[in-house]
């Protein structure tokens, strides 16, 4: 089954790449504006040979990872506190719903005003966007706690901390993992976007320079790199999720009674 999936995935990719080669070659779009796959691959080869590319990749990954860690920690802590403290959830609900849909990109002028075009600007945008992904999942996860289990823990005299550790956390963990996985993708998008728009060093800034320079194949090569990064991050996040939830029914695949 897994082997078949890999074959199908590979075939899909091959067709996609062949289309990318054929469409410009057949003149459906102009080669000058959308180069065929082979030229993008050439440009990608040149990029990979350039040390500045690896520095940019490192910058992007730093922004992504730091942002994701900060957002995840903050999201988990805030989510648990909001759920555990009485009335806090009701009191914050409208504020959360007000803040959550604000696009991170709209905060770019604020980020630049505060931090210039350094890493911290990227972090502000990344953390803002991914924090809500985690927070919302934690809130749902905590809501999912079995009241009977919670009452049982209470009657056994478990304190607040022990109940968070043994009842709330295991229930919320699958949700948290989903939140972190979503946040990982959002964080990458925002890291690249921030670099693209603000010009903070990284892959996004390189894409912007290639755009301004009319270096079309190089631009697409860099875009391919961001796509590959996204793919790797998703695979990585799923692996972590499976490992961390090895005990959970959704992963074990059997019904718990």
């Amino acid at each position: 089954m897994k082997g078949l999936n890999v074959v199908l995935g590979g075939a899909g990719l091959a067709v996609f790449l062949a289309l990318g080669e054929a469409v410009p070659r057949l003149g459906l779009v102009k080669e000058a504006y959308f180069p065929p796959t082979s030229r993008i691959a050439d440009a990608l080869g040149d990029e990979v040979a350039d040390s500045a590319f690896w520095t940019a990749l490192g910058d992007t990954l730093t922004g992504w990872a730091l942002g994701l860690i900060l957002a995840s920690c903050a999201g988990i802590v805030a989510g648990v506190v909001i759920s555990v403290v009485p009335y806090l959830r009701e009191a914050t609900a409208s504020t959360v719903e007000f803040l959550r849909p604000i696009p991170s990109v709209a905060l770019i002028p604020l980020a630049v005003l505060l931090y210039g075009t350094e890493l911290r600007s990227v972090l502000l945008l990344v953390v803002y966007a991914s924090f809500w992904q985690v927070l919302i999942q934690v809130l749902y996860g905590v809501q999912d706690v079995d009241p009977v289990a919670d009452e049982t823990a209470r009657s056994y005299g478990l304190g607040t901390w022990a109940r968070i550790r043994h009842v709330l956390w295991p229930t919320a963990l699958p949700y948290v993992m989903t939140g972190v996985r979503l946040a990982a993708a959002v964080a990458l998008i925002l890291a690249v976007t921030a670099e693209l728009v603000i010009g903070a060093p990284g892959l996004g800034a390189r894409i912007a320079i290639a755009q301004n320079s009319q270096a079309v194949p190089e631009m697409y090569a860099l875009i391919v790199v961001t796509g590959l990064l996204g793919l790797l991050i998703n695979v990585g996040a799923r692996t972590v999720e499976r490992r961390a939830l090895a005990w959970h029914q959704s992963v074990r695949g059997e019904v718990m009674v």
Binding site: V112, L113, T117, I198
Partner: peptide, 13 residues
Amino acid sequence: LTTAQGGAAIVPA
């Protein structure tokens, strides 16, 4: 020398 995409990012900085 740092580069930005345009005045919108440079002026506030």
